[in-house]
Design a binder for these strands. Structure first.
Lengths: 329, 329
DNA sequence: ATGAAAGCGCTAACAG
DNA sequence: CTGTTAGCGCTTTCAT
């Protein structure tokens, strides 16, 4: 920066100002400075700026997996909402593991982000403590925790699946199965399964048709295998709710391979409203949790908090919508 | 850090060392320091460390879209390969736009990453200059540029589609169409279309069956719509090659809706070997470009360069493999 | 609109 | 194995 200042015939301080949006520098001076910088191949050094100004313009985000279109949609909504203010996302993956989340959160907080967004409301005690003491806005998403750390933008996974069970029962479908993960690793998956069980019990129905499909995330293939086991062991099942559209699609293909008619012999429902659910044949009944909306609302919440417009903790409830399609009556 | 040092009864320098992996600090001292830090709620400040040590432990990565399983696989492979060395990925999305890539690359370089990985070998002149002058290892992926900026880990998109055309021609299928983007925005898509055209011409065949499916990225729905137009306008087409598995799957569903038999009436091929290609009915013939392998090889290349084990520019060619499945004879 | 002085919190370099 | 000194490249603060 000193070199640029020398070439442009100004002080380093003026060069610094020329690289900011709103700083008061005359147009002539600024263009001379930017020209000098370009000629010298100078690239602004954020690391020094970050230290001195105590601002990094990072927003830390943790998602379970990069390879999931739902979370990717949330990150995209978030990213776009934050970009206009010059905030950049610092992304990390927890691999559906709260221990990994703990390591990740600590690592991310060291980078001094302006805010942190985590997926889900289940954390290790230490993660919780780190978040609480971080001194920055914390947003939990994709869940509605009973005792949130800070702000919340999400929905109840259990309630959403509960609504799907209610829907089937209203159609006089009562022998309903659930395909999901076999571990408690994916806390959203566990919540969905819990919603299934509580809904079945609320209707006085058998909640025992649970098929474990593997460790999260459940792939299409695992969904197909689980459907095979369901058809083999409980052939009188009338409907199956899958933990995600991906496993539901896999289940659907298994029916196609076996010549089992959907929804004629068995109805299939998914979760997430992935693109595939709307286009596959038959199209999949599912629940839309509005992943992009979660991202957008989180972004504007963060901006409001950083601007001081939002004081106190916000709890923004997204209302998932059940989408009836061809895979169910 | 000074506070922690005081509580632990050591100098700040010793605290600094205690937070590093390999630094020489006695076990007793280190645990006392970490205990004091925990009691005080101290979180290490990377911003200061980054400035002083001139190391950020960031590797910058640009991908066209976060919402693409192929690129996500590459990022995952990369991320895992770099994690063990404490390198963290700083990710940005270009939205399939070289102008956006330019903005992004400049922004990322300001953060002083240890290396930068970009998707593709097509850039604006200024992006190229920024990369060349960055002074850090540059890796272009998912392409085999004629004049690389630095290192390369990728494959020829044109050659891969050329091989698919050759495959069909060897089966005496000659009336072949291509479904892809209508703009030159997605450079990989453009390269694939170019490979289709040159292959058809090399066989003396009509390369005019081109269906424009929309602006990249091409969705499943756009693939379905494009297939509809193909069936309406060129019903004697024997095979269609799609720019990606997602559009190919959409095309497949359109055939299902219309009662057009695949591969009986028309063969369908995709690109990318997405999970869906292996499980849908009929399963999709496609090309596997080994996205995770690209990520892993890129990670180990970067580590070698940073260690000084790799001098000069590496050009690592990944060999895509054609996978024959049920959607083609 | 521009400049001078001081310092952000850590660590390289050197010493012991 | 531990400590001392100086400074990374910006920007805050206060001037003018």
């Amino acid at each position: 920066m000193a070199d640029v200042a020398r070439v442009a015939g100004v002080s380093p301080m003026t060069v610094s100002r020329a690289f900011k949006r709103d700083a008061s520098v005359s147009d002539a001076t600024r263009s001379a400075i930017l020209e000098a910088a370009d000629a010298l191949g100078y690239v602004f050094d954020s690391t020094a700026s970050n230290l001195r100004s105590q601002r990094t313009d990072f927003v830390a985000v943790t998602i379970p997996s990069i390879n999931n279109a739902n979370f990717a949609d949330t990150v995209r909504g978030l990213s776009e909402g934050l970009k206009e203010r010059g905030l950049q996302i610092l992304l990390g993956y927890t691999d559906y593991d709260v221990r990994e989340e703990e390591r990740l959160v600590e690592q991310l907080l060291r980078r001094r982000p302006e805010a942190i967004v985590v997926t889900g409301g289940h954390h290790t005690p230490r993660t919780r403590r780190l978040l609480e003491n971080s001194g920055i806005p914390v947003v939990e998403t994709w869940d509605l925790p009973v005792a949130p750390v800070g702000h919340v933008v999400g929905f109840s996974n259990a309630a959403a699946v509960h609504a799907m069970v209610d829907h089937f029962v209203s159609l006089a479908i009562t022998r309903i199965a659930f395909i999901g993960g076999d571990a408690d690793r994916d806390t959203r998956g566990t919540d969905r399964r819990a919603g299934f069980i509580s809904a079945m019990r609320a209707h006085g129905l058998d909640a025992g048709r649970l098929i474990a499909a593997g460790t999260p995330p459940i792939s299409m293939k695992e969904g197909a295998d689980a459907m095979g086991r369901l058809l083999d062991t409980m052939p009188d099942t009338q409907a199956v709710i899958c933990v995600s559209d991906l496993s539901a699609f896999g289940a659907l293909t298994e029916c196609q391979r076996r010549g089992v008619s959907v929804p004629g012999q068995i109805a299939v429902a998914g979760f997430g409203n992935y693109e595939i659910a709307g286009i596959c044949v038959p199209s999949l009944t599912t629940i839309n949790p509005f992943p992009d909306e979660i991202g957008k609302r989180t972004a504007s919440l963060i901006l409001d908090v950083l601007d001081g417009k939002q004081t106190g903790s916000a709890a923004i409830a997204i209302k998932p919508v059940l989408i009836r399609r061809q895979s169910s009556p």
